[in-house]
Amino acid sequence: MAVLDIRDLSVSYATPRGALKALRDVTMKVPEGKITGIVGESGCGKSTLISAIIRLMAPNAKVGSGEVRFKGEDLLSRSEAEMRALRGTEISMVFQDPMQTHNPVLTVGRQMIDIQYRDKLSKADKRKRATEMLALVGIPDPQARLNQYPFEFSGGMRQRIAIAMALMAKPSLLIADEPTTALDATLEVQIIKRLRELQDEIGCSILFISHHLGVIAELCDEVVVMYAGEVVESGTVRDVFHNPAHPYTRALLECDPGHIKVRTRNLPTIPGNIPDLVSLPTGCIFADRCDVRYDACGARPVMATASSGHQAACHLIAEKEPA
């Protein structure tokens, strides 16, 4: 069973120009014990999707339709109190900026003990657990470092502490929003390796958001590609990266300079801009920038199966699909 099962979720923001349709009919899953990646560029709706899952939405956001099922139950119908009980215990999150996640005026130990406020343990036991968690994420000499303040740790260390805190309650789902973007490449690989090991040890499911294709390829089991508020492709990383079915995924992979081994002074790009999400085009959302568009693209495509477990929202796939 999927830990997280999102069905036809639509979210819009009220703006002076009208409703900005940030998410439209998003359907995706995070299977039990797996790492699912969401990849997409600025404005694709990644952040809106996370805020809808944990129900920490901007005041002008409105869920139009859909379900966010967590372990079979729809989170959208829960009360605020029920959501609060869920956050940090069942679902926890690691944010992008490790420099601003922690309280600067409290020691790391104090913060790690404080977040265990729900547990009826002695303070010494809580401290012991904090020490164990720090050791688990690879911080040397954890006992002593609990007495230090966030500024005494480097960015990579702070992100490890954030991960330790997020995993403290052994959540079923960890949401990681670009956790390595602010880190240097050599530290990024350390964190990714550690996340993979922790997932094996703790057995939680991870929803990992990134714009970095290489990181997704290395860490995730499955991947969901988003563009301008829609899911355009989903499947195992192997299927999606080796046989991209949607022209956007294909173009995105081609643009990644990590892919291009031969030196060139003319790098591939995707010409054009993402469409205006207030007044959307009627047909396929990517048609404007697509190099294989044809007559059918004037109508909105539905998700079609490219191969078992691998889907894409493109008319070309639907055409090839056996009736």
Partner: peptide, 25 residues
Amino acid sequence: LALLAANPEPDPDAQLMRVELSGEP
């Protein structure tokens, strides 16, 4: 070499020549 290797490729089957650095600068 470590910098070159810390650049994950967009390919899940990429042959990883991973040179891992311990610790931080």
